[in-house]
Write a protein that binds this DNA or RNA. Sequence first.
DNA 1: CAGGCATATGCCTCAATAGGAATATATTGC
DNA 2: GCAATATATTCCTATTGAGGCATATGCCTG
Lengths: 111, 111
Amino acid sequence: MESAFAIIAEPSRRAILSLLASAERSVGDLEQALQLPQPSVSKHLRVLREAGLVESRVDGQRRLYRIRPEPLMEVEAWLAPFRRYWSAQVDALERHLDRMNPPPRRKAKKR
Amino acid sequence: MESAFAIIAEPSRRAILSLLASAERSVGDLEQALQLPQPSVSKHLRVLREAGLVESRVDGQRRLYRIRPEPLMEVEAWLAPFRRYWSAQVDALERHLDRMNPPPRRKAKKR
DNA sequence: CAGGCATATGCCTCAATAGGAATATATTGC
DNA sequence: GCAATATATTCCTATTGAGGCATATGCCTG
């Protein structure tokens, strides 16, 4: 099985994974979102599937793909030793990302 | 300039970067540590240098290479949305890595 | 079962790239 | 300047992989 690093070297595959990070999607969804030819999407999905980065389930004539994030932990782990270089910049990055993502709810918010 | 993702797809280059993460090293150091032919090391270093991931300084007849971690922040940022999937596992990973590394003064997140 | 939609696969070509071997460049000490 | 060491570069080859296009497979509906 190919390393996750090689898999995510491809920009289209990164885009697919980023889309799937937020929700399950069909091949057609991805095709339209990325403006890629359908065979191209299917081929990238095959690579991703064989590397364990996505899995699919059948839904009528569609296939819904979802993330399987485990292989990305290899990347995360490899990256760890470099964090010490980032210091201040990484704090800024983290604050930025925390604003973009659902921050871990600490106090219950009324809605 | 090539994306950092493409650069770190190559295992030897990841090994070089990991070695440089802890200390500045000469080409010969890397050659011996990785058991790679010297031209191979030099070629990988060239790719890394042109992508901004390392820089060198002259020291007599040696060239000492060191990390320039900024381009890796692209990887870090891309990876962020997937962290929410890791939950418990990532906690364990972080504890592990914190034990291995000098704990980088991780301030409690306030918001 | 026919026809249509969604997805997958096969084939081909082209470009990029890693690896090996030889050689070039630079620096030091004599 | 010459030899030795350290590093970089060039040339070649073989492999890999993405992209385009055509086609196959699968499922659904009438």
